[in-house]
Write a protein that binds this DNA or RNA. Structure first.
Length: 273
DNA sequence: AGGTTGACCTGGACGC
DNA sequence: TGCGTCCAGGTCAACC
């Protein structure tokens, strides 16, 4: 499991950037055409004679712009990895795409479970349906978006249309830091709780980025380096272990079909739960 | 609208 | 050792 969420994707972008920006594309090696979306794009023609102008992050996407401003993104899904390797190196299993640059180095996309994809954007930004970025989210914006739904906060925070970039790990960690029970209904959160949540999300994500993300099994950045934020997890993956704040055993429930970890003392149930 | 469930995939963990 | 089963979660689709 790698589970690239916002912090992991941020690290991948930071480590990938110096290795690909400004480089001219020599050719594409497409090993699995159905990993590329949408169908019907002539990928080789789009990359003919082009170079990479920029690499950035939008939510969990790695967004590339070519020197003609047309773009594409890589979504790593759950087990996706990117690296820049010499084309003579043995091809790793589950390699779906290689973007070969001059000097025979290739941006290599590997994804065993193929939950990820590479998507052609063209001129579009492609993020119309996505919610705002958590790191720059203002409390009033979060409050307004939460007020529009009665779903459990755990479920809503995983919905990329509400906020884009959080996944299962960082939702659980953020809710614990904010002292909010995962089953709290969004529109029942008072302004003070929303402020705490907004701050908790940012603090959690910033610290995770600083620690290089969470490596549970096999997440690595574009340099092949592992993250260490899993050492700092307060609830995720810690069922039955003592809460770092109060010592109570961490509870694990399935909420919205997702494994959910919380402290029953530090994250009290809302009235009626 | 919100809820629930399953499908997509593979590899690793676990039980017998 | 070796097989079968379960589980992980990002996203989408189906259905109630």
């Amino acid at each position: 499991m790698g589970v690239p969420e916002l912090p992991e994707v941020q690290r991948v972008v930071e480590t990938l950037l110096p290795r690909v920006v400004g480089r001219r594309v020599q050719c594409l090696e497409i090993h699995r055409a159905d990993y590329l979306k949408p169908r019907g794009i002539d990928w080789r023609r789009q990359f003919q004679g082009r170079s990479i102008r920029s690499v950035s992050r939008r939510a969990k996407r790695i967004v590339f712009r070519l020197d003609n401003d047309l773009g594409f993104f890589i979504h790593l899904g759950m087990t996706g990895r990117v690296s820049v390797v010499h084309v003579a190196a043995p091809l790793p299993p589950h390699t779906h795409l290689q973007i070969v640059f001059e000097a025979d180095e290739a941006l290599t996309v590997v994804d065993p479970r193929r939950f990820g994809n590479v998507t052609w954007l063209g001129e579009a930004a492609g993020d119309g349906a996505m919610g705002p970025e958590p790191l720059t989210l203002r409390p009033a914006t979060l409050a307004a978006r939460l007020a529009g739904t009665s779903r459990a906060v755990k479920v809503a925070l995983l919905d990329q249309r509400l906020i884009a970039g959080l996944g299962n790990i960082y939702v659980d960690e953020s809710l614990h830091r904010a002292g909010i029970h995962p089953l709290c209904r969004c529109r029942d959160l008072d302004p003070e709780a929303v402020r705490r949540l907004n701050r908790a999300i940012k603090t959690t994500l910033r610290r995770a980025i600083r620690a290089g993300g969470s490596t549970l099994r096999d997440y690595v950045d574009a340099n092949g380096d592992r993250g260490s934020f899993q050492m700092l997890h307060r609830v995720y993956g810690r069922e039955g272990k003592p809460c770092t704040a109060c010592g109570t055993g961490i509870t694990r429930w399935v909420i919205g079909g997702r494994s959910t970890h919380f402290c029953g003392i530090c994250q009290p149930a809302a009235p009626g739960e």
